[in-house]
Every structure is written in structure tokens, then in C-alpha cells.
């Protein structure tokens, strides 16, 4: 038996530690995702948002921490991607307008909740076939490598996607060609309603990387600073030409799989336990107050500011025009 030729990630990301202002900025981004999605949930119950709507509430520290480590890198995500888009810098107005199906949305109202794209932000979408987008990340990695861009591609998916053939093929190719891709499995323990122990013999999805000899790490994702640091280390590793990385980031979604899911499959008390001890916003708030001495007033001001942005997003979306029926065929073939 040969030993696993699995490389190790660097101990440190090399990113400068966050000061109070830096952490407060990340806190603000998490609160913004939370509030935009709470408003989206409200809009959904009012039938202003239709179709599928998968909320990220509870997982905000993952996207926000990762964005802080990879501001100029490419991201590609699945269908629970409002939070990733906002973290990557896509405007709340355009995200909300897309959810409302308006012409001012990120995808002109053509994509909806699952298909948010913003080329300027290097946010390469939201995809609705579980695991189907993972191979695309390798293509971005391929282009980065050929053009010596010095960037990486972060590819997000859930624990459910780690059972798809497309995912396994993508890991094989990424490692074979040492592509600068960081695969991020956000393990929230439920693939729709099927819990992780009912889906998989191994419940640490990062172990999937061992089969292809890829660098891997499992981490808890509730502390935004920790996510920033470890995603930073993974991105540094990939950026420096050492090949791809597979991270499993443990997280927890507070809502159902989608708006129509009451999430009755959870054991009693599980959600409450996570809300009490692993709530990313509460953890960061406590850290700001206790370790950085940020005042309650300052934090309240952040909430107030975010509230205005989220409400403005709602108003913008609501007052925006529907797509013009004359444009129906405009984006089938590129000229």
C-alpha cells in the first residue's frame, strides 16, 4: 500500500489580521445578507418572489469570510447563492430585483433566485443542477493558469453535491492538472431533507479529496475570522501553483431547504442549539464587543445602516419594471 500523496495546506494565510474596523465591515456584510434574505422570505410569502428560493440564513460567515480572503478572485456557486453574491460585492438592489423577476436584476430577470450572475464582481453564477457546476470551476482554473492571472476560482457546493459524478470528475481533473481551484463544500448536514449520516458512510466530505491526492481540510465555519484565515490559506496554496484544495466548511442553515420546506426532519432542539452556540452574527458581535471594545451604539448604527440598504433594495426591486416582452429572444444566442 502506498501512502496518500496528499499535500498539506500552509499554517497561515499571510493575510493581515483584522482590526476592529475590518471585522466590523465583515459583520456589516453578514447582517446585510441576513436582512436581505429575511426580506426575501417576507416577499416570498407575499408572492412577490416566486419559484424556488433557498435561504442562506445561518451560513453567512462562510461566504463573508471567504470573500474577505479572495476579493479579486472568481467565484462560482450553486442555487443557495444570494449570500455569496452579496458577499462578493453584487449590489443588494440588483440581487433583490432579480428575485422579484425585474429587468433591473443581475440577470435581467431571466435567472431568478438560482441564477444570479455578475461579471464585474467575477461572480459566475448560481446553478440549479446539484453538482453540475463543479466541473466549470476547472475551466476557470484552466484559463487562470494558461494566462498566468495569479487568481483562483472558488467553487461552492453543498454536502449533497459531494455525491454527484460531476463532482468526482472535477476533483480528478483539478488535481491532475494542478488547477488553481478551491472547492468549498458547505456541509450544512442536510441535502434537502436527507441528513448527512443517511447520505454518506464518511461524513467528512473533505475526505473525498484523499481519493485524488488533493490537499484538504475540514473546518468549522461559524467564526468569520477563522473562515477568512483558512480560505485565505487554501487560496494562497492554490494561487502559488501548488494545485487545488478541497475544504469542507461545517455550517448550519436555519431555514428549510427552500421556502416551501418546514424542515421537520431535524431532531428536536438541534436548530436551537446552533442558534444558541453557533450563530455567526451573534459570535462576531460578541467578539466585536468583548475583544475589540466596539460599543453597542456603533453596532446598532451598523444595523440601522444595513436596514436602510435592505429596504432600499426592496423598494428598488418593487418599483423596477418587468422585463420587456420584446426582449424575450434577445439572449438565446450570442452575437
Amino acid at each position: 500500500m502506498s501512502e496518500l500523496p496528499t499535500p498539506s495546506l500552509p499554517q497561515e494565510s499571510g493575510l493581515p489580521p483584522l482590526d476592529a474596523e475590518g471585522l466590523l465591515k465583515l459583520y456589516r456584510e453578514m447582517v446585510l445578507i441576513r436582512r436581505v434574505e429575511e426580506l426575501a422570505a417576507k416577499a416570498y410569502t407575499m408572492r412577490k418572489i416566486l419559484g424556488f428560493c433557498h435561504l442562506y440564513i445561518g451560513q453567512e460567515s462562510v461566504a463573508v469570510g471567504a470573500a474577505s480572503a479572495t476579493p479579486d478572485d472568481y467565484w462560482i456557486a450553486a442555487y443557495r447563492e444570494h449570500g455569496h453574491a452579496l458577499a462578493k460585492g453584487v449590489s443588494a438592489n440588483a440581487v433583490m430585483a432579480e428575485l422579484f423577476g425585474k429587468a433591473t436584476g443581475t440577470s435581467l430577470g431571466l435567472g431568478g433566485s438560482m441564477h444570479i450572475f455578475d461579471k464585474d464582481a467575477k461572480f459566475m453564477g448560481g446553478y440549479g443542477i446539484v453538482g453540475g457546476h463543479v466541473p466549470l470551476a476547472n475551466g476557470v482554473g484552466w484559463a487562470i493558469k494558461q494566462r498566468n492571472e495569479g487568481r483562483v476560482c472558488l467553487c461552492y457546493f453543498g454536502d449533497g453535491a459531494a455525491h454527484q459524478g460531476a463532482f468526482f470528475e472535477a476533483l480528478c481533473l483539478a488535481q491532475l492538472w494542478k488547477l488553481p481551484v478551491v472547492f468549498i463544500c458547505e456541509n450544512n448536514f442536510y441535502a434537502m431533507g436527507t441528513s448527512i449520516d443517511r447520505q454518506s458512510h464518511l461524513t467528512d466530505m473533505s475526505l473525498r479529496a484523499n481519493g485524488v491526492g488533493m490537499a484538504r481540510e475540514q473546518l468549522r465555519g461559524f467564526d468569520v475570522e477563522h473562515v477568512r484565515e483558512r480560505v485565505g490559506a487554501a487560496a494562497k496554496f492554490a494561487r502559488e501553483g501548488n494545485g487545488p484544495v478541497m475544504l469542507e466548511i461545517i455550517t448550519y442553515r436555519h431555514r428549510g431547504h427552500s421556502m416551501s420546506d418546514p424542515a421537520k426532519y431535524r431532531p428536536k432542539g438541534e436548530l436551537e442549539e446552533y442558534k444558541l452556540n453557533s450563530e455567526p452574527l451573534a459570535l462576531t458581535k460578541r467578539r466585536l464587543e468583548q475583544d475589540f471594545g466596539v460599543s453597542a451604539e456603533r453596532i446598532a448604527a451598523v444595523h440601522q445602516e444595513v436596514e436602510a440598504v435592505a429596504e432600499e433594495a426592496w423598494n428598488f426591486a418593487e418599483s423596477s419594471p418587468d422585463p420587456d416582452p420584446a426582449t424575450l429572444y434577445d439572449h438565446v444566442y450570442a452575437e
Partner: peptide, 19 residues
């Protein structure tokens, strides 16, 4: 490798960023 899903997807991602 014999991995049509993998390399077809790679091509698509590369095309999206200008190749």
C-alpha cells in the same frame, strides 16, 4: 482521462472567461 462530464464542463468554464 476518460471523463467526458469533467472535461466538457471544464471547456464551458474556460469559455465563460474568454477562451
Amino acid at each position: 482521462p476518460i471523463s467526458e462530464c469533467g472535461f466538457a464542463g471544464l471547456g464551458i468554464g474556460a469559455a465563460m472567461v474568454g477562451m
